[in-house]
């Protein structure tokens, strides 16, 4: 079976559009510049089988955005067009490529290690007919394509690869850094940098516990890891509930491991916490192996640039923008008619 990445889809809370209108009218006015947008996503939902969703909410334009507890940060941008014509004629192919290559710069330079939420990048292009509460919009989730020859194993259930004790330690270590259960976590409570991490898996007989560390710790731990038999594994919080695939975040993480961390053969854990609080576990997590045909150093000088994919499909799975008509719930005239 072939390994695949399940794409994100967008979930926009309706009040966001109202905030966006206000921001456009009062602050941006005629500017069509990119504006930073914050969002969040949830771990895999096994109860309902929800598809992985980047949730843009009414606070997403707020500079002091706080990721809701139990959610994970995605960093993106919105560009609001003044007319439908400028939206239509905007060179979107170039735009996605530029967005992806900007992300690639952050990844390959190692800057993304400091702020891993950029790996869950998204963009939103939109035109709002503000008078009629109608918005045309198109999300993308830039995903970098690995070079030909990169191979990934099919995902294996974590409990079949790891001992029960190790799987339990993984959940506990993560819960500690994430602050599950109410007390502040070691990495803060915001979830901002919790989406991607390093796992130090001790060798079988050394008796040390497993550890979860931030990605940015890589430089220091890798320099001294030769002296131990510990295994270093990459981890990410997986929004995908499927046994045979993993979520979109793995896509850019794999590229980060190859370029910034200099790895050619490594394992990745798609961490799928359940329960969310002290009583939870992660038995549906999966692990997979990745191998690149050559080290990044040998292609970087030749100016390697990854292909970028990631346009969101519409509800019929077509390459097209979506339209949302909020007038039933926003237009005061309509509201007067239905109020009881």
């Amino acid at each position: 079976t072939k390994m695949q990445f399940q794409p994100f889809q967008s979930y926009v809370e309706a009040p966001f559009w109202q905030k966006l209108s206000t921001h456009k009218l009062e602050n941006l006015r005629l500017s069509e510049n990119n504006v930073t947008l914050h969002a969040h996503y949830a771990p895999a939902d096994f109860k309902h089988g929800k598809p992985p969703s980047i949730c843009v909410d009414r606070m997403s334009l707020d500079q002091e955005y706080v990721v809701p507890p139990g959610q994970f940060a995605a960093t993106g941008m919105v560009r609001i067009f003044n007319t439908m014509e400028s939206f239509r004629e905007f060179d979107k192919n170039q735009f996605l490529k530029d967005s992806g290559l900007e992300l690639w710069r952050l990844i390959s330079s190692g800057e993304a290690l400091q702020n891993p939420s950029v790996l869950s990048k998204f963009t939103l292009l939109t035109f709002g007919d503000l008078k009629n509460f109608k918005f045309t919009y198109w999300f993308s989730f830039p995903g970098l394509c690995a070079p030909d020859g990169m191979q990934m194993s099919a995902p294996r259930p974590l409990p079949s690869s790891w001992s029960e004790a190790l799987t339990g330690q993984l959940f506990k270590s993560f819960a500690d850094v994430a602050g599950y259960g109410g007390s502040p976590g070691a990495w803060g409570n915001s979830g901002a940098n919790l989406g991607y991490f390093l796992i130090r898996k001790p060798s079988e007989d050394c008796g040390k516990p497993l550890e979860v560390l931030p990605l940015k710790a890589w430089r220091e731990v890798s320099s001294c890891s030769e002296s131990t038999a510990d295994e270093w594994i990459l981890g990410f919080v997986d929004p995908c509930p499927l046994p045979q695939a993993v979520g979109w975040p793995a896509r850019n993480l794999v590229m980060l491991a190859w370029s910034a961390l200099g790895l050619t053969k490594f394992s990745v854990v798609a961490f799928r916490p359940q329960g969310g609080v002290s009583s939870g576990g992660c038995p549906k997590s999966v692990v997979f192996d990745v191998s690149f045909p050559e080290p990044y150093e040998s292609v970087s000088s030749a100016g390697f640039e990854p292909k970028v994919v990631g346009w969101e499909r519409d509800s019929k799975n077509r390459l097209a923008p979506r339209v949302i008509d909020l007038s039933p719930m926003m237009d005061p005239n309509v509201l007067t008619e239905t109020a009881v």
């Binding site: 072939k2 390994m3 695949q4 990445f5 399940q6 794409p7 889809q9 309902h48 089988g49 929800k50 598809p51 439908m84 939206f87 239509r88 060179d91 979107k92 192919n93 996605l96 109608k134 045309t136 198109w138 995903g143 394509c145 690995a146 499927l242 695939a245 896509r251 292909k307 994919v309 346009w311 499909r313 519409d314 509800s315 019929k316 799975n317 077509r318 390459l319 097209a320 923008p321 339209v323």
Partner: peptide
């Protein structure tokens, strides 16, 4: 693009990518 039935890709082209799992947008 105002009508859901009319599909307008607005010039966007995306090459095939075999690593992407397209399964529609519904819950599964």
């Amino acid at each position: 693009t105002d009508t859901a039935d009319v599909c307008d890709s607005m010039g966007v082209v995306e090459e095939g990518d075999t690593m992407t799992l397209w399964q529609g947008k519904g819950y599964m």
